[in-house]
Write a protein that binds this DNA or RNA. Structure first.
Lengths: 194, 194, 194, 194
DNA sequence: CATGAATGAGGCTTCATTCAT
DNA sequence: GATGAATGAAGCCTCATTCAT
């Protein structure tokens, strides 16, 4: 059950994210957003405290979803690290595709948040990283992954590789998002060499 | 031999890049830049046409250097694709470390460029990608890399992984930039699995 | 019925015209205008797109009024050219007196308009001239005016003579504006010679 | 004999007048003038005290020439007022044609002069008017012109008619400047009516 | 004489936010 | 609850003029 209120907020967030992605946060006016939706400025300020709050909510929404997902995956019982990694990469890629404009804004506009908001984001980011590291470590412990693997560096590599999708992935491109995930998973597990 | 003029321009670019990185392009005033350097507004506008021109030059400088590097590496004779890949990844990582603030700006602020400038950047980006793809293809042709490798996706994975460094690498961190490059290289070539 | 909006716009136009007349368009600041009226800068820009728009509207207002008037006079039925000329000269003189500051700006500041705006003005000017010429031609055709009269040159002479009023006419001067019109009319029709 | 100095000054005045006419005094930069001539800013300021001084000199040059001319014409012995008027109109028209850009600037830009400069110009203008009035009065006294003629109003009419030429006269137009003068002279003396 | 790099005050404009209705 | 007219602080940029060389 979604209230009228929540619908309006979501509509504002989605529209804003699309505009922020296209033109940049600072180049989008409140009036651009309200015009696109067909509401008035006053109505906007009835639902949001400020322009920055849009940004904050875009960040919170995205990072919470992502952090929840990795935590869940990590805690699935009876799964090898390899299987978890597979799930993780595909989930991560899909998450970026599904929230494309939110993600783009997420990566580019955090300088426009207040310091507290930035600190909060960074904590969530660290948490995300922490769980990826844990999965890699599990693989090493299980003896599946090479013993000399550096879990943190590898995690950062994987996260980077996946995040970067937001820069180039297109729904009408050569590969579907799942295929991309599969290719990334294979690269990371087996490498390029024969 | 570097002229006085060029020195001033470089100083402005470096100072601007640092400020843009820290606060975001739109949150930095021309007066912030000139105050930091100790010059007057007029002096700045004697050397630059506009604030946007700073951004343009930051972009051109970085992308040109990167595109030159990958082209060179590709054309080194008597090198296997594996060796070229090694060079490329390390060069790329180092490039990001050495131009950290420029790169951060590069990835985050291009919405503030004019359409023509954006188009130019995209072309250079494509060129960069093209050469990475060629190196991967060489590896496949040489029989070194797996035959079923998708060169473009793999290239995008590698580029993403390396680019992402700008988000987390710190000179006083656990690993040096060369070590990071080595870890990435091994991951990409051999994978995580035993 | 005049809306609040239209009143504000008119007030801005009149105040601006007076200031432009006195100090020149380029020597008048937006803040001079708003201070004189007692409004804020923001309020001004809520009603006008730019400073140049003031100029454009001053031009459009004046020239439209003038062009309408001459067209009307030309089309009045059952009037000799001589009678029309009388009306025209007096109407023209009065128009300049009544819109003194607008007219002064009109004659002096068009270099500050955009090229398109200038072109538009010139077309309206040509239209004005066209109708004066037609009246003179009517007089020649009617056999009232000398057959060897050059309608265009004479029209330009009359228009110049009348326009020039903006340079010297004062309401507290020796002659009223109607008397000036009468003197001009007699000069043009009968000449100086006995 | 013209010194190098005077040549430079004249060149600057002519070039400036042309640019001022085309773009308006305030829209022309000192650098525009110096670039057109091929001199440096420093060199300009070696010859001129300020930008305003250009304007002042343009004004002085033109108005002095015109005032001298009308005074001379008035004082030619053994000439009827009618003959003087003929000379005057033609001289005035030619003066405007020959100094077109100077005259345009003269009529449009005096708001950019200092108050003292403006006062000086107005005095010279009054002097010019005074002599035209005297010629008309002479005609009335001689019994050539109608007794009820208002010399001042008629003078202002003639001056306006002639001055206005700067707005429309073109060297490649239908009539030469002398023909225009002749037409104006006839209109003023004999009128339009048969 | 001649240069041209350097100055810095000040103008036009934008836009997030408010609040009376 | 909803509106949208009004605000006003602040930023980018210009350009006449100077002066060390």
């Amino acid at each position: 059950m979604v209230s009228k209120q929540e619908e309006v907020v979501q509509l504002i967030l989605d529209t804003s994210a699309k505009l922020f992605e296209k033109y940049g946060y600072n180049n989008v006016r409140i009036s651009d957003i309200t015009r696109d939706i067909g509401m008035t400025t006053g109505f906007f300020y009835y639902h949001f405290r400020s322009k920055e709050q849009i940004l904050q909510m875009i960040y919170e929404n995205y990072i919470s979803g992502a952090a929840d997902a990795v935590r869940e995956i990590y805690h699935i019982p009876n799964l090898t690290a390899q299987e978890k990694l597979n799930l993780l990469i595909k989930r991560h890629c899909k998450g970026i595709r599904d929230n494309h404009s939110h993600v783009s804004v997420f990566f580019r506009e955090y300088r426009n948040l207040s310091e507290e908001a930035i600190k909060l984001i960074q904590e969530k980011n660290s948490e995300y990283l922490k769980y990826v590291v844990k999965i890699i470590e599990q693989g090493v412990d299980e003896g599946l992954f090479k013993a000399d693997v550096n879990p943190k560096m590898v995690s950062l590599a994987i996260i980077g590789m996946c995040n970067w999708i937001y820069q180039w992935f297109k729904d009408d491109g050569e590969k579907s998002i799942d295929e991309v995930g599969e290719i990334f998973y294979r690269l990371v597990t087996s490498g390029l060499l024969k």
